[in-house]
């Protein structure tokens, strides 16, 4: 059962990811953004299979919800419209594919040369997951948590400053 779900979610993730990068049906940026939402939702499904229930919920709420709303808002605000067909040059395409293949080679080599751990004992279940994450966040990872809060505050101030009309 689990592996069926894995293959379903993996196929959905990769399929929608492909539609984000190269959509043969539509050139509308809004469609691409919606495909990215679906990719992120399928990834949340994979997170559930990996027993990361809390992260799956956060992924849906923050990445698929808040962040993508921001993306769609800016796309519509700027009125990007259908992407002008300024084709990437042949040399550029060849170099892009070559670099991706090189990166894939590095990944494949690293995977082939490593002994991967088999699956370990299961997690603590759905309720225990959130409990354990919260306890770790507020004890061992308290300083990073506070630092992240500071990062969010600085980002908010920066965005307000950048959004001013009379930006120097």
């Amino acid at each position: 059962m689990q592996e069926v779900f894995f293959y379903v979610f993996a196929a959905l993730t990769l399929g929608f990811g492909f539609l984000v990068v190269a959509n043969p049906f539509s050139r509308d940026p809004v469609t691409r953004a919606m495909c990215l939402v679906l990719t992120i939702l399928s990834l949340a499904g994979l997170f559930v299979l990996l027993e990361a229930y809390f992260l799956a919920a956060v992924q849906v709420l923050v990445s698929a919800g808040a962040v993508m709303v921001l993306f769609l808002f800016v796309i519509m605000l700027l009125d990007v419209g259908a992407e002008q067909r300024r084709r990437a040059g042949r040399a550029m395409t060849v170099m892009a594919v070559a670099s991706v293949l090189a990166l894939g080679g590095v990944f494949a080599r690293a995977l082939a040369g490593t002994r991967l751990p088999a699956v370990s004992a299961g997690g603590a279940g759905m309720a225990g997951d959130v409990e354990a994450m919260g306890e770790m966040l507020l004890t061992r990872y308290l300083v990073p948590l506070e630092a992240t809060g500071l990062v969010l505050l600085v980002a908010m101030v920066g965005v307000v400053l950048l959004g001013r009309k009379d930006l120097k």
Partner: peptide, 29 residues
């Protein structure tokens, strides 16, 4: 059952897709 290498494979493919997109698209968004 789906092992670690399956998940890493999906992750690598998705990363490659994103890289192609960054390199080939001309629009910043």
């Amino acid at each position: 059952t789906a092992g670690l290498e399956h998940y890493l494979g999906v992750s690598a493919l998705l990363f490659g897709l994103g890289l192609v997109g960054v390199l080939l698209r001309g629009n910043l968004i």
